[in-house]
């Protein structure tokens, strides 16, 4: 059964222009779905609608069969966790203090995480291979390390759905592969539904079950990752691509029309 259902969602920040124009989408249990599309096509906006930071003008979003308009932020946070595209750091909290914040939806207004929660947080950092960061101020680590810390915080929420807005941003190639593998593994093992945005079609092919191509606030097509073709990408990005096959590894390369 689909865990997230997006039905005919229209959204506009101001009345002049619709940023989302009738988006339909489904994410099932244990499935990794990637949104792929040009800058400004509305990917971040769609994710924000799903975690109810923005309210669609038209259309509905269902989580586990329930309309999100009937759920509180807390009820939503018990099911969905996420990492936004941009994070502005504030006070120099320790990394472990940031990770443990993922416990928030399960705590009352007047309580704090227990020692056990700090242990869980530490385990999650360990799984991501970043246990040594725990005591460091999170304002003084690299952008990629901070990205991992925010992913750890999202995992701390013990979610059934993860919304990740460019989870590989700032990461080096090894950490990109590592993080995406972990996400993929979690989706399979813990039966998580993952909806993320990426900018690299090859990462999308490697790690997602389904790819949703987005352009100007509309879903152009929703296909399995094997079905992604150079033509479909060209339609979305307005630029030619070439598909290279090496055994059963498929790579998509942009065709440069411009010469310097």
């Amino acid at each position: 059964m689909a865990l997230i259902v997006v039905k005919d969602v229209h959204f506009a920040y101001d009345d002049s222009k619709f940023v989302l124009r009738g988006v339909n989408l489904e994410v099932k249990l244990g499935e990794v779905v990637t949104l792929l599309g040009p800058n400004g096509s509305g990917k971040t906006t769609l994710l924000r609608c799903i975690y109810k930071v923005l309210k669609p003008r038209i259309g509905c979003i269902y989580i586990d069969g329930k309309n999100i308009l009937d759920l509180t932020s807390r009820e939503i946070a018990k099911v969905i966790s996420g990492v936004p595209q941009e994070h502005e750091t504030t006070f120099p909290y320790r990394v472990i203090d940031v990770v443990v914040m993922g416990k928030t939806p399960f705590l009352d207004l007047f309580s704090a995480p227990s020692i056990k929660d700090y242990k869980v947080a530490k385990n999650i950092l360990e799984k991501l291979g970043k246990a040594e960061l725990a005591e460091r101020p999170y304002t003084q680590i690299s952008g990629g390390e901070r990205q991992l810390v925010l992913i750890a915080r999202a995992l701390m929420q013990n979610p059934r759905v993860m919304l990740l807005d460019e989870p590989t941003k700032h990461l080096d190639i090894v950490n990109k592969m590592k993080v995406l593998s972990i996400i993929k593994k979690l989706a399979v093992e813990k039966r998580l539904a993952v909806l993320m945005t990426l900018h690299d079609p090859n990462e999308a092919i490697m790690f997602s079950d389904k790819i949703v191509l987005v352009k100007e606030g509309k879903v152009i097509c929703s296909i399995s990752s094997e079905e992604l073709t150079a033509e479909s990408l060209e339609k979305v990005y307005g630029m030619p691509f070439r598909l290279v096959k090496d055994g059963n590894v498929k790579t998509i390369l942009p065709v440069l029309e411009y010469t310097v």
Binding site: R48, S73, R74, I76, K78, T90, Y93, P105, L107, S111
Partner: peptide
């Protein structure tokens, strides 16, 4: 302790279930 979460900004605090 809740102040920690609030200091992460509106969007992230909301993502973590804070009203």
């Amino acid at each position: 302790w809740r102040l920690n979460v609030l200091s992460m900004g509106d969007e992230e605090a909301k993502l973590m279930g804070v009203n």
